[in-house]
Amino acid sequence: MGHILTAGQKTPDATGKTATGAPLSRLDPRTRILAAVTFAIVTVGCSWIPVLLAALAVAAGLAVLSGLPVGPTLRRMAAMDGFIVFLIALLPFTTPGDPLVTIWGVTASRQGLMLAIDILLTANAVVLALLALVGSMEPVTLGHALHRLRMPEALVHLMMFTIRYVEVLHAEYLRLRQAMKARGFRPSTDWHSLRSLGYLVGMVLVRAVDRSERVLGAMKCRGFSGRLPLLHAYAYGPRDAAFAAVLGAALLALCLAEVSHGAA
């Protein structure tokens, strides 16, 4: 996924979450996580195209409110679409149903096309809402909020360590890579490149374990007792209630539209 990361946005620590002052950033982080999950479940549950278009519009509205940078966000969505286009492009041809067009003797069905559009819209709506609601918060805040939402403590700690050291190890990786470049390494499709990159990966892992031993030593030295205090105390406020009411009403409307279409 390196191709969608620009120089300033290499790791979760720097993915454009300086969106202070944006309306969504004043909500309780737990509200935003729960909203993203609810939105995802409702959207995945719907399959009528107009409903999915409305869901995508809701997600776009959330993205505007979150203050995410437009360019990088669209680039991420395009990268994801490029990923799945291969998968869904085949669907019209492999789903049985009313014939639509025939290409090279293979018939595309209308049902298959609808299914492909369904998946495309669902995936984009959910990812956009997720980036807007959760992706726009500080990774550390995400860890604290998940802890308050009863994610197991060990998993939260594991995640906090990962968030912290992705940045550090990425810098280390870039240093090693630069050293290779200085010695004239240019990656291509040959045994030498694969072996060199393999050694690079091995070295990053070895250094990671060495580093973790020093980290553990330093933590013990400071009396690490097995618990990291998570200081943030969160409180739901009137803003959260208002947001939950508006989003809840929108999602309920989507559900009702879906059900009424299914009944008709």
Binding site: H157, F161, I163, R164, V168, L197, L200, V204, A208
Partner: peptide, 17 residues
Amino acid sequence: IPAAGVLSAAFFVASLI
């Protein structure tokens, strides 16, 4: 947990290669 967390970060970085 520190070792697992740092290695998890290392695999995250390796997936960028």
